[in-house]
Design a binder for these strands. Sequence first.
DNA 1: GTCCCGATCCCCT
DNA 2: GGGGATCGGGACC
Length: 197
Amino acid sequence: MSDSPGKAEGAFPEFLAEPADLVAEKLLGCFFERTIGQQRLLARIVETEAYDQDDAASHSHRGRTARNEVMFGPSGRLYVYFTYGMHYCSNVVTGEDGHGSGVLIRAAEPVEGISKMEKLRGLEGRNLANGPAKLCQALGIDLQLGGHDLRKDPLRLLEGGLLPGENTTRTTRIGISKARHLLRRHYITGNPYVSRR
DNA sequence: GTCCCGATCCCCT
DNA sequence: GGGGATCGGGACC
C-alpha cells in the first residue's frame, strides 16, 4: 500500500460515553493497537454497528446477564462474545455507566503487523479483518480480553479520523433478525476493507 | 435439564 | 449462493 491510512493520534477517544450511534460514527478512522509479545499490530476501523438496551437486536436488550455485563459498565472497555460455536466478536462499550450499549467493530484496515495478522488468520490477502470475527482472529482477541480497559496494553483504542475526501454513511445492520430497519451500521464509503454484503 | 438458534466464516459449487 | 462447523446463552418445561 502506498497510500497513507491516516495517523494514530495516540490519544484515547473522549467521546465514548456518548450514545452508541454517535460513537459508532466517530470510531470510523480510529485505531486498534494490539501488542502481542514484541509485535505491534495496528488496524484502522472502517465499519461499525451500534447496539443498546432499547434495541431488540442487542445482547443487552433483555437486561444484565453474566455474558453481557460488560455492556452495562463504564465506556471504554471491550465486550467480547463468542458465537456460532467458533467465533469471537468485539464491541467497544459506550454510553453512561449503567446503560447497556456498545459498538460492534465489524471491519478494519490492516496498517501495521500485517504478516502477523496473516499468521493469526491462516490466510493472506485482503480478507484479514473485513468481518467482526475475522478482525478478532487477526488481532488475537478472544474472551480473555473480555472487559479489558482499552486505555491500556495489550489492546488500546487510539483516536483517529477521516482522510481528506473520505465520507461515511449508514445502513441497516448485517446478520440480525430483530430491529432490522434501524440504520445503525456505519462505514467509510468506498473503503475496500469494509465487509461485503 | 433440554432445546434451539445465533451481531459468522470458509469452502465448495 | 448454500451448507457445515461447533457451543454458550436464554427461553421454556
